[in-house]
Simulated assay, not measured.
Amino acid sequence: MKKLVCAWLFVLSGYVFADQANQINTDVGLVEKKSFTISNFQTFNGKMIKDVKVGWESYGSLNQDKSNAILITHYFSGNSHAAGKYHQDDAKAGYWDAIIGPGKAIDTNLYYVLSVDTLVNAGVHDPNVITTGPASINPDTGKPYGLSFPVVTIRDFVNVQKALLDSLGIGKLHAVVGASMGSLQAIDWASAYPDRVPRMVSVIGMGQSDAWTALALHQWAVPITLDPKWNKGNYYDGDAPLDGLAGSLMVITQQALHPKFINQVNAQHSPLEEAPMMDILANHKAVDWLQGVARNRAEIMDANHVLYLIRACQLFVTGHDGDMKNGLSKIKAKSLFLPSSGDLLLMPYMAKEAHDELRALNKASEYAELQGTQGHLDGVYSIQQKAEKLRAFLAD
């Protein structure tokens, strides 16, 4: 059973995905991770961070008047690797390779597509991630920041991306497109810089973090903070809190997937398994499966970075100024919302709420639901369902 599951599934950026991504023709080809540096970056809450570094990727070519750029903003535990491969022998391509490339929905024959690693990116130990966060060295002390790193928001992720675009001479985007936490960035882009964003696509997203979401996100943090090795974020000279981080990733992964998918993977599950019946410390095989998935991914993540990402999502409201309606009122972009009908993490009502408010404000907004069995993750691996709708939206 375990070998079958490993062959069928792989872990990418803290989530479990069906191995269908390996079947995709990576027309973008080989891509390169580049680095961008900001000497002094002021956060939304007024703090200063020195020597901020983030990684970024691009696909396609920027046209002469620099008007064809599409920004892809990534999800919670992802990074800027949205399409293509780094090496010919890579096992998998970027997470949205199905819709990014020559002739695809986000056509790199037409558009210059770029994506940026967020601040406090979860994958600190991933060699293809470049990010600044609590695990980084504070230039003033020569030691890791730990929890002295400033709290950051979705707006800070947006402003780092804006600084990169400014350095490239891109004054206006063709569109911003993002999934999950990336959808938060996309809609905040449209609110913060309305004259620079004529089109916004929110996939498996929301317009604000409500009380239910804040509580759900808090559950992600609890296993980390209860791990004695976390030591209030001061663990960089010792053992990392991998048990707590793995526990967090178990919660994240289960919430991101639909019961149908988990039950399909664990089709041999039996409530009356012998081991847990005879030993209170033994697990059901399904629990061991999810623990294995989580522990493998924990090795390339940093617990403090995950906590900071959780807080950024908890703090989110479109526009970061008062309430969601106020933030949405500033948007000039036409919007497209693509939630997943089976999403139990960012449920469709959250996207519908933002869409309906935009319509009430006489803004152009479209809404369509993805179908599938993978829950929240249908926004990544079923996105091709809406490829033609996305293509038409970008062309209009």
Rank of each mutant, 00 (worst) to 15 (best):
Q254W: 02
Q254F: 01
Q254G: 00
Q255M: 09
L257I: 02
F261Q: 01
I262Q: 06
I262N: 04
I262G: 02
N266H: 14
Q268V: 12
S270V: 15
L272T: 14
E273Y: 04
E274V: 13
E274L: 11
A275E: 13
A275D: 14
A275S: 09
P276F: 05
M277A: 14
M278D: 15
M278F: 14
M278Q: 14
D279L: 09
I280N: 13
N283H: 10
N283V: 01
H284C: 08
A286N: 09
V287E: 04
V287F: 03
D288H: 10
W289Y: 09
L290I: 15
L290S: 04
G292F: 03
V293Q: 06
A294T: 06
R295G: 08
N296F: 11
R297Q: 15
A298H: 00
A298M: 04
E299H: 09
E299W: 05
I300H: 01
M301H: 05
A303G: 04
A303L: 03
N304W: 04
N304E: 12
Y308D: 06
Y308V: 05
L309I: 11
R311C: 09
V317N: 06
H320E: 15
H320W: 02
D321I: 05
D323N: 13
M324W: 02
M324G: 05
K325M: 13
N326D: 13
G327P: 02
G327C: 08
K330D: 10
K332H: 13
A333K: 03
K334D: 09
S335F: 07
S335C: 15
S335W: 02
P339C: 08
S340Q: 05
S341G: 09
S341N: 09
D343L: 09
D343H: 11
D343R: 02
L345E: 04
L346V: 15
M347K: 14
M347Q: 15
P348N: 14
P348K: 09
M350P: 07
E353K: 12
H355R: 06
D356L: 11
E357N: 10
E357Q: 13
L358Q: 10
A360C: 13
A364P: 01
A364W: 03
A364Y: 06
E366H: 07
A368S: 14
E369S: 08
G372H: 01
T373K: 03
T373L: 02
Q374D: 03
G375K: 00
H376D: 02
D378V: 05
D378R: 01
D378N: 13
V380A: 03
Y381E: 15
S382F: 03
